[in-house]
Design a protein around this nucleic acid. Structure first.
Length: 713
DNA sequence: AAAGCTCCTATTTTT
DNA sequence: TAGGAGCTTT
């Protein structure tokens, strides 16, 4: 993504990184020259780095130097003559992609003995499955019959399109309630990603929707047709179309031959479709290395398939070699003991136990507090105390199951003026004003997009759904949709405002359109509409758009901007607020999902309470509970020195004041039974004492916090 | 046909 | 909280 994002992401990962084990990166360590390459790798890591062309599965436990090993392998391959342009490096998440690119780049830089001013050879084919898929599809669009300038729908867009199809099919007004658009898309997406037929998905995942089997099938057919008519691909299409492209033997051979090596990180989080892509790309597994840890599989809800990693070796004849990394360089033994105990209760897993020779230290703590307010206060106290003890804020992280669980803590941090950056759960792209502005750009880029056009047209006062539909129908029918837009006759009441829009659109559709000046033009056009539609908080929303413009300036073209923003949206709040000052220190807040692959000296996990971990929504199926267990395991294994699990005895489930605050008295998570709890140091009042203190009024304080915060706006 | 209302509901995690 | 659906008014 743009400069702002990479600066923030860089800042967020650099500090912890500097403290990692990485023998190869030890201060003063000369760069791996040929004979002594990676002499400091442990034997298992060394075996991975020097493995040949045969298919390889690396089972790498948390903190075992996985990324270092992968990056070293990349460096070794290049040293041995591999062309960096012919290395395909795939990951599931954006963060892992960035991390892999950065570490491999640094390693290459060292390995080639380059000076600081020289840059390492780029690894152009490193990225997420979705991003690489998008690039390949654009490159091969002509060959595979896709429109060259296709738009990529983010999840919101895809839902809206599904919603329109749903209405067009008359499913919005059924007697018994038809699944909502989001649910429809979830079902569709599950079918695509798990490569399972609709009836199986309905039976296993959405039994309450099974009666709508026929209607859903028709709906999905319409949805797919609409996407094609609008020259749009959704996230799933990026994988699906890629897989379909590879189903053609000659294309598969052509693409497979483009890459000498293919390394896949986070393999435990890939789904059946992604596995199919890899099989088609490298049918005999030659040059293929996959890395993962079944104990850290936490994306089952996105159809990630643990079987991918469990079944990988047997796909090949002879079976792929399996190398296991078990030596942990990250955490203290006490933290590992507790983590191992949590995951040991898991039903099915690739057996391994992490170990370290780091000297034993304090046990992780299980901290009982009365409620969320007390939790926030305890965490803030602890963070400040640690900082007094010499630990920077950046070396500390607070992790939580769902994004809003940090709300109380964020207020407390703001009150005490403790800076923080929050990862995950950010809905920047979902804000109405951001969507509006992007819709204009997207429409200009792809005039066939009814989604974008509809949204933009409705912004003009006097244009409603009926006129908008007439406009878009006319554009659909025209060979030159841009001309049809200019020719459209709006209702008289809208004439003035409509002219402004057509002027803007014709400027944006100039062949020599100047980017990023485009976005200024759009902002200029949109600002009055924004003020009209969002009087109350117009200033703040305009600020968001300024931020968007800054991101835009970092991209070479409009198309790249739209693609990058859709596939790699700003993910931390600091991205919105602009890059943090270089020397500024801040605490890390993150969802556990977004924390995967990261590490910090001190980690605090909020709400380790039944109903939260596991989430009460997830307690339906055994498989979901298992995934929640792995989630806790992932959270715990992020910690290097200190780990605190917070147990608020009372925490409220919803912020709906209308129905009154609902509270849960869950108690300690079921994942910490007494035997496991014994591995922790207990902090805080006993359960009895805490329960008596629960009668205190707690809810009202929130507004005070908000006022205090707004005083600094 | 558009705009301005009043309910209503749905709230995991990510590409 | 906020966005959406559905109703009523202009």
């Amino acid at each position: 993504m743009g400069a702002a994002t990479s600066v923030a992401a860089e800042a967020a990962t650099l500090a912890p990184l500097a403290l990692t084990q990485s023998p190869v990166q030890a201060p003063g360590q000369a760069l791996p020259t040929k004979p002594g390459v990676h002499a400091l790798l442990n034997p298992a890591q060394w075996a991975v780095v020097h493995h040949g062309h045969a298919p390889l599965l690396v089972v790498a436990g948390a903190g075992t130097g996985k990324t270092l090993t992968l990056a070293s392998r990349v460096a070794r391959l290049v040293l041995d003559g591999a062309d960096p342009q012919r290395l395909l490096l795939l990951t599931f998440s954006r963060r892992a992609a960035q991390e892999m690119q950065r570490r491999a780049g640094r390693m290459l830089h060292q390995a080639l003995g380059l000076r600081a001013t020289q840059s390492a050879p780029a690894l152009p084919w490193a990225g997420t499955f979705h991003a690489i898929g998008a690039r390949l599809l654009r490159e091969y669009a002509d060959a595979v019959g896709l429109p060259v300038g296709f738009s990529i729908l983010d999840r919101g867009d895809a839902e809206d399109l599904m919603g329109l199809a749903r209405q067009a099919q008359g499913l919005a007004a059924t007697k018994t309630r038809f699944p909502l658009k989001g649910t429809c898309l979830a079902i569709y997406s599950r079918c695509v990603n798990s490569a399972e037929p609709l009836d199986a998905v309905l039976r296993d995942r959405f039994p309450w929707c099974a009666v709508w089997h026929a209607e859903l099938k028709a709906l999905f057919r319409a949805y797919v047709a609409d996407k094609q008519a609008q020259h749009s691909l959704d996230y799933d299409d990026l994988l699906l179309a890629w897989a379909q492209m590879l189903a053609d033997p000659s294309l598969a051979a052509h693409l497979g031959a483009r890459f000498d090596f293919c390394l896949v990180d986070e393999y435990q989080d890939t789904n059946r479709l992604q596995a199919r892509i890899l099989r088609a790309l490298k049918p005999d597994g030659r040059g293929l290395t996959v890395v993962g840890d079944d104990a850290q599989s936490i994306y089952g809800f996105r159809a990630a398939c643990v079987r991918n990693i469990l079944d990988f070796p047997a796909q090949y004849a002879p079976a792929a070699q399996v190398l296991t990394l078990e030596r942990n360089y990250r955490s203290t033994q006490a933290i590992l003991d507790a983590s191992n105990a949590v995951i040991a209760q898991a039903a099915e897993r690739h057996p391994k136990a992490l170990w370290t020779d780091a000297r034993a230290s304090a046990r992780p703590r299980l901290v009982t507090v009365a409620d969320e307010m007390a939790q926030a206060a305890w965490v803030a106290d602890e963070v400040l105390a640690q900082r007094e003890g010499g630990l920077t804020l950046k070396a500390q992280a607070v992790l939580f199951r769902t994004s809003h669980h940090s709300a109380a803590l964020e207020l407390e941090l703001a009150r005490r003026q403790i800076p923080y950056v929050k990862y995950g759960g950010l809905k920047f792209l979902e804000a109405v004003h951001v969507k509006d502005l992007l819709a204009v750009l997207r429409w200009a880029e792809n005039p066939r997009s009814r989604m974008a056009g509809f949204r933009v047209a409705l912004l003009v006062p006097g244009i409603g759904p009926a006129h908008a539909r007439r406009l878009l129908d006319a554009m659909d029918a025209a060979t030159d949709p841009a001309a049809a837009l200019q020719a459209f006759a709006p209702p008289a009441a809208a004439a003035q405002d409509w002219a402004e829009l057509t002027r803007l659109m014709s400027a944006l559709c100039q062949p020599q359109s100047t980017w990023p000046a485009d976005i200024d033009a759009v902002q200029h056009w949109y600002a009055p509409h924004l003020r009209r539609l969002h009087e109350a908080d117009a200033a703040q929303r305009l600020g968001d758009l300024d931020q968007l413009a800054r991101l835009a300036a970092a991209q070479p073209t409009r198309e790249r901007f739209l693609t990058e923003l859709t596939l790699d949206p700003p993910q931390a709040t600091s991205d919105e607020a602009g890059p943090p000052l270089r020397d500024e220190d801040y605490l890390i807040l993150s969802t556990i999902h977004s924390a995967k692959g990261q590490e910090w000296s001190a980690v605090t996990v909020l709400n380790v309470v039944d109903g939260c971990m596991p989430a009460d929504l997830a307690t339906g199926h055994a498989a979901e509970i298992e995934e929640e267990r792995r989630l806790l395991y992932v959270a715990m294994t992020r910690a290097k020195q200190q780990l605190n699990l917070m147990v608020p005895l009372r925490f409220h489930v919803s912020q709906q004041h209308r129905a009154g605050d609902r509270h849960l008295y869950g108690g300690l998570s079921r994942f910490i039974p007494p035997g496991v709890a014994a591995l922790f140091e207990r902090v805080g009042p006993s359960a009895d004492q805490a329960l008596t203190s629960v009668a205190m009024p707690a809810a009202g304080t929130i507004d005070l916090g908000r006022q205090l915060k707004s005083a600094w706006d």
